[in-house]
C-alpha cells in the first residue's frame, strides 16, 4: 500500500511516496538513488547499510520504511559538506589506510560517527564495540580502529 511519508534526510525535508513493505534501505538505494549506503546481506549481519537515525546507528535493511517517518536520517552522502569538504572521519579513513575494497566503508564510518557524536574520547574497546556489527573482510579492522581513534578527541 502506497502512502506519503515525510522525514529529514541529510538535513533536508523529504516528502516521498512509499510502500509500507519497503525497508529504509530500499527507499534510500532504489527510490532516492543514494547508493552510498550498501546492501551487503539484507538481514542485519554485515552493517554495510548502516545509517544514523535520530542519533542511533541502525541497519537500514532492517528498518521498515515507515519507522523513519518524522525522523532525522543521515547517510554517508550527508557527511560531505556542500563545498565537497569531507567529514573528519572520512578524512582519517583515507589517511590511515582504513579503506581497501571500500564496500564496508560507508557503514563503518556511520557507526563510528554515531559513537563519536556520543563519546568524543572512546577507548579502543568502545571503538571495537561500536563497529562490531560492521564486517570487513579486507583490512583486519586494525587500520579502521586507528582511523576512528585519530578522528576522536584522543
Amino acid at each position: 500500500m502506497k502512502r506519503e511519508m515525510m522525514f529529514k534526510l541529510n538535513g533536508e525535508a523529504v516528502n516521498v511516496e512509499v510502500e509500507s513493505a519497503w525497508t529504509l534501505l530500499y527507499l534510500l538505494r532504489e527510490i532516492l538513488e543514494l547508493t552510498g549506503t550498501k546492501l551487503g546481506c539484507g538481514y542485519g549481519e554485515c552493517g554495510a547499510c548502516t545509517v544514523i537515525m535520530d542519533g542511533q546507528a541502525v541497519n537500514a535493511c532492517l528498518v521498515p520504511v515507515l519507522e523513519a517517518e518524522g525522523k532525522n536520517v543521515t547517510t554517508i552522502e550527508g557527511l560531505v559538506q556542500p563545498d565537497g569538504q569531507l567529514h573528519p572521519l572520512q578524512r582519517t579513513f583515507i589517511d590511515h589506510g582504513a579503506v581497501q575494497c571500500g564496500f564496508c566503508t560507508p557503514g563503518m564510518i556511520m557507526s563510528a560517527k554515531a559513537l563519536l557524536d556520543e563519546n568524543q574520547s572512546p577507548t579502543d574497546e568502545e571503538i571495537k564495540e561500536s563497529i562490531a556489527g560492521n564486517l570487513c573482510r579486507c583490512t583486519g579492522y586494525v587500520k579502521i580502529i586507528e582511523a576512528v581513534k585519530a578522528a576522536s578527541g584522543r
Partner: peptide
C-alpha cells in the same frame, strides 16, 4: 593514501550492486 579512497569514503564508488 589510496587514490580510490576518497570516492569510497564519500559513498560515490559504484559497485556492481
Amino acid at each position: 593514501p589510496k587514490k580510490d579512497a576518497p570516492g569510497k569514503v564519500a559513498g560515490e564508488a559504484a559497485y556492481i550492486q
